[in-house]
Design a protein around this nucleic acid. Structure first.
Length: 533
RNA sequence: GGCCCCAUAGUCUAGCGGUUAGGACGUCGGCCUCUCACGCCGAAAACGCGGGUUCAAGUCCCGCUGGGGUCACCA
């Protein structure tokens, strides 16, 4: 096949100020949120969905939900369901999606594979893409060699220059292949970002991206471009991490002969240390925020504050009010740190203005539902003798974060130090993230915790107590794994991480002569929600 | 490391050439009050550095520094 060696620059958009975005685009507004169902519903998904939603509603357009489940090894239906549930919880209802359909379905990419295969084939026929037969091993070796030469580690384009005969031979031999985009080798690709203006990237720095994997599934890049076009998406509003691959997408649109949409990249939400928000450093699951007692409207309001300024020093507002005043000049490209404390304050504002009846309704929809209490009663029933003991006994089931101040020393087993314990708790949380991603059941948890001990050399006897205290705040509790199930995945992990963190920053008060403080394990103070942190 | 993005207090932000640099979270102090909380009042706290342009720069330009992202048959 011949490689098209385009030397012309590719320019999209113009130099108009970001204020005019979408500017010249006269198409009806159609935007989408396109989560990948490979984990818990992510706060970043809600953040991007929010701005898409607001923009769509502002312009009377449609907001589409598309499931990007093209990674067969990681995508699950359970994750997809959790994401839909979480987006509904937070109050961003889509107009078209896998559950409600729409004129451009299906909205689940795994059901569109024929479309992608057909489109990638068309590109091959045109000479804009080519088959690559390189093995993973060869790719790896080539990458290493290029690194050693000081070049960028991309694909060396070996198969781009295969002759027709060679390709036919490999095909006839039944060799596995992927389809790659033949990027222009020279020139530059320029596009207009709605928040930053023109962005220019040298074509020579862009890899020949894989479009179709050897399993016949598309990569994000292909599926995303094909679907955005077929679903008539007018504006692509997504996270900043996609800026670098936008030129690949533009070249794809051009290869197909399509007009690209307008692009705008939102800043990434940050951990307190300013890295991209991640579960190790900040709770990221929307389910955590729900279980920890945050109101969806408060979380949404808070998320909008991450970059958006309402005007007039106003910080508390509804979605409808935001839509009313919204435009992109009020959105900044800065990199916002997600601050749980301020979210908590804002949530308090919402709570304080509720009538008692409303709050009661909310509480009943939360942890005071029959459904939830019925999970706790079997666990506590045999441990109490009078009804009045139930609520104190079950308090840690009804709270969000725990405060370990005062009980930290009880977390550390004999013959272990605080650092080791902290590390174990933190590693265990990572381990659970991997091993119990799906099916948060007591059997799975017990197995994972035992496996973890086996792997790390901790005895179950010494590790299970710190786990128990981290999860419940007490040394005495109902069976550990059933308790973890009732409390839920997100709150459990959060408490484990908080305890690990508390251990890390704990400086043991060893005042000589002072009698050792009574371990908090004897008469546990009722767990208090930890306002800070 | 290459490429790209970002840059006002610890944090979220207002500011779009002339301001005592405004608001909010958090922190500290006070008032209110039977306690706590809420509420109210007040305080400390910022334009990363260096060059330009201009009568005048937080605001425009360049460089540096710092932070981040990205370099997958993951999205």
């Amino acid at each position: 096949m011949t490689a098209p060696a385009s030397t012309s620059d590719t320019t999209l958009g113009n130099n108009s100020h970001a204020a005019r975005w979408p500017g010249r685009d006269r198409r009806p507004v159609r935007v989408r949120i396109a989560p990948s169902p490979t984990g818990d519903p992510h706060v970043g998904t809600a953040y991007i969905a929010l701005f898409n939603y607001v923009f769509a509603k502002k312009h009377g357009g449609q907001f589409i939900l598309r499931i990007e489940d093209t990674d067969q090894t990681r995508s699950t239906l359970a994750s997809e369901e959790a994401i839909l549930r979480a987006l509904r919880w937070i109050g961003l209802q889509w107009d078209e999606g896998p559950d409600c359909g729409g004129p451009f379905g299906p909205y689940r990419q795994s059901e569109r594979t024929a479309i992608y295969q057909q489109h990638s084939q068309a590109l091959v026929d045109k000479g804009a893409a080519y088959r690559c037969f390189c093995s993973a091993e060869r790719l790896e070796a080539s990458r290493r060699a290029r690194m050693a030469e000081g070049k960028s580690p991309g694909y060396d384009r070996l198969c781009r220059y295969l002759t027709k005969e060679e390709v036919s031979a490999r095909l006839a031999a039944g060799d596995k292949y992927v389809i790659r985009l033949a990027m222009p080798l020279t020139g530059e690709t320029r596009f207009f970002d709605g928040l930053r203006g023109d962005i220019v990237i040298d074509n020579a720095t862009i890899d020949d991206q894989v479009l179709l994997k050897s399993d016949g599934f598309p990569t994000y890049h292909l599926a995303n471009v094909v679907d955005d076009h077929l679903m008539q998406v007018s504006h692509v509003i997504r996270a900043e991490e996609w800026i670098i691959s936008t030129p690949k997408h533009i070249q794809l649109y051009l290869a197909f002969g399509w007009e690209p949409p307008a692009f705008l990249h939102m800043p990434l939400l940050r951990n307190p240390d300013r890295s991209k928000i991640s579960k190790r450093k900040n709770p990221v699951s929307l389910d955590y925020y729900r279980d920890a007692g945050f109101f969806p409207e408060a979380l949404l309001n808070f998320l909008s504050l991450m970059g958006f300024a309402f005007g007039g020093d106003r910080e508390k507002f509804t979605l409808a009010e935001m839509i009313e005043v919204f435009d992109w000049t009020k959105v900044s490209a800065g990199e916002p740190v997600f601050d749980l404390q301020k979210l908590t304050w804002l949530n308090g504002l919402y709570l304080h203005e509720m009538t008692p009846e409303t709050l009661l309704t909310r509480l009943r929809a939360w942890r005071l539902s029959d459904e939830y209490l019925l999970k706790l009663i079997p666990l506590e029933k045999e441990r109490i003798e009078r009804m009045d003991q139930f609520i104190p006994a079950a308090s840690f089931f009804l709270t969000g974060d725990l405060d370990y101040t005062g009980i930290i020393s009880s977390l550390i087993p004999k013959n272990r130090d605080q650092l080791q314990t902290s590390q174990a708790l933190s590693d265990l949380t990572d381990f659970l993230e991997e091993q119990v991603r799906h099916g948060w059941t007591h059997e799975a948890l017990e197995k994972a915790c035992r496996d973890f001990c086996e792997k790390t050399g901790w005895k179950t006897k010494e590790l299970f107590m710190p786990i128990r205290i981290a999860v419940t705040g007490r040394a005495a509790s109902p069976p550990l794994f059933e308790t973890m199930v009732a409390i839920g995945k997100d709150l459990t992990r959060r408490r484990l991480r908080l305890a690990a963190q508390a251990l890390l920053t704990y400086s043991a008060p060893v005042p000589a002569g002072t009698p050792a403080a009574a371990p908090a394990t004897k008469s546990p103070p009722p767990a208090k929600p930890n306002k800070s942190s």
